[in-house]
Design a binder for these strands. Structure first.
Lengths: 113, 113
DNA sequence: CGGTATCCCGGCCGATACTG
DNA sequence: CAGTATCGGCCGGGATACCG
């Protein structure tokens, strides 16, 4: 029984956001997602390559974060090869690539601190 | 007993970061900090103004997040007036202002989704 | 007006071990 | 190689009530 003032909003993945920054932070926020996306900007990477680039993250957390990024449509996972000699590549989707400029700005800012 | 490969790193607030994105996400990540900073880009605001701009956040969480932003040197808190008729203004520091371009890119990206 | 105090839950994230 | 299973700590953040 609210007047429901029709505040501008956006829906994505069944969630409502009243500020585009909220949406962005929900998709790339957290301790690792931004870093993963940043390293994928320079090209697709294997799971093991990401582990080398980000040695602080555990296998499990890396796996979970990659899955979330995939669910949110920011990266694409592709499997090549057989059973115990898998080759899995992660690359940015077009949506994922579009966030490049923002990550580069964040990076510049972080470097300047 | 590690060779301590001298990976490039940065220290801030007694924490070590191996990627500028990590540092940036630590300072502006979370559910609200980016949104707060974004609204402060257009000029200093009172506590109550921020509540109106971001009605989803509770008083308490807003207070906590503002305190963290202040601790990290991104905003400055100034008190005017007396006891129960306080006027408190929050404005970006120079460091806080420098993150404007990144927030604007994030915003553009969020709007485009 | 601009906050605090208290309680608490859910989820992020890590450690360790195991697997197709 | 590229993960998953299990366990658990920590803390971000919400609900509610109260304060100078």
């Amino acid at each position: 029984m609210q007047s429901d003032e029709e505040r501008p909003s956006k829906r994505y993945n069944n969630k409502t956001y009243y500020c585009p920054i909220s949406l962005a932070m929900d998709l790339i926020g957290g301790k690792w997602k931004g870093v993963i996306l940043y390293y994928l900007l320079s090209g697709e990477k294997r799971f093991s390559e990401l582990k080398i680039l980000i040695p602080e993250v555990t296998d499990m957390t890396l796996s979970i974060q990659l899955k979330k990024l995939e669910q949110d449509g920011l990266i694409k996972r592709s499997v090549y090869g057989q059973k115990p000699l898998l080759k899995v590549l992660y690359k940015l989707t077009s949506l994922g690539e579009k966030i490049g400029p923002a990550l580069e700005q964040l990076c510049l800012w972080g470097e300047g601190i």
